[in-house]
């Protein structure tokens, strides 16, 4: 198979050009593209994604931590985690638009629904996997249940919990791309409205969304590194070295 290399290169060059300089819309009239519009749409996408992630964290993390600490509700935690993967993103967004209406609110709800399962399940699993001996030792030192969670279980579960948060964040940012279907103009506008932005706009949108997702992943990996207790990180390095 020979790839039409020249045309592929042209497409990508055009997409880069779309990102950096404005041009007339396909239908004529308005100017589209350029850094200013790119930044507007990206800011919107980051804004709704951050909002949805915050709400999902506020709801799912306490429940996951509580269930994990109590050691109950495993079926619930696992079922929610698995059910979350089965939610068809497009159907969810279309459902919100059709039944609730357009705007940031329905989009946030939809994104939150996608964010909750990985956070809840990983919080549960992370806490459950904490060495029971460590928890017993903490109790023996006279810690209250809340202190056990906050000072022992939570720090030790950071890697697993953060993995869930990263999965949730990536799902949320990715799905926020189809925000224009609920009337929230995110970077997906470039991809969805090909009649306005043209093929190069679609490709530009795809490049920007991909970069945004990778940036979010890197950022959260950094956060995870900061939150992981030093002792735990050292211990992991040691086991890796001997493995």
């Amino acid at each position: 198979m020979t790839l039409p290399l020249a045309s592929v290169v042209d497409s990508f060059t055009g997409a880069i050009d779309f990102i950096f300089s404005t041009r007339e819309a396909v239908g004529g009239g308005v100017q589209v593209g350029g850094l200013e519009q790119v930044w507007d749409l990206m800011a919107k996408q980051i804004e709704v994604s951050a909002l949805a992630l915050a709400v999902a964290l506020a709801l799912a993390l306490p429940i996951g931590l509580y269930l994990g600490h109590r050691g109950t509700g495993e079926l619930l935690a696992v079922a929610i985690g698995n059910a979350g993967r089965a939610i068809p993103e497009l159907a969810l967004i279309a459902f919100m638009a059709a039944f609730i209406g357009l705007g940031v609110f329905p989009l946030t709800i939809a994104l939150m629904v996608l964010g909750i399962p990985p956070i809840l399940t990983n919080a549960f699993v992370g806490i459950r996997q904490v060495d029971r001996d460590a928890v017993e030792a903490a109790r023996g030192m006279g810690m209250t249940e809340l202190e056990v969670i906050r000072r022992v279980e939570l720090p030790l579960a950071v890697p697993t919990i953060m993995t869930g948060v990263r999965t949730a964040a990536i799902n949320i940012v990715a799905t926020a791309t189809i925000g224009p279907l609920v009337g929230v103009v995110t970077l997906g506008d470039f991809i969805i409205n090909v009649n306005v932005y043209g093929d190069e706009g679609v490709l530009a949108g795809a490049i920007l969304v991909a970069l945004l997702a990778l940036a979010v992943e890197l950022l959260l990996a950094g956060v995870q590194r900061l939150l992981t207790p030093r002792g735990l990180a050292l211990q992991r390095e040691a086991t890796r070295a001997t493995a």
């Binding site: 790839l3 679609v202 991909a210």
Partner: peptide
Amino acid sequence: GVLYTLPSIALFSLLLPV
């Protein structure tokens, strides 16, 4: 892992010219 991080909608659109 990087492939998995790319949003599907972006991956679909990135492949279109190819």
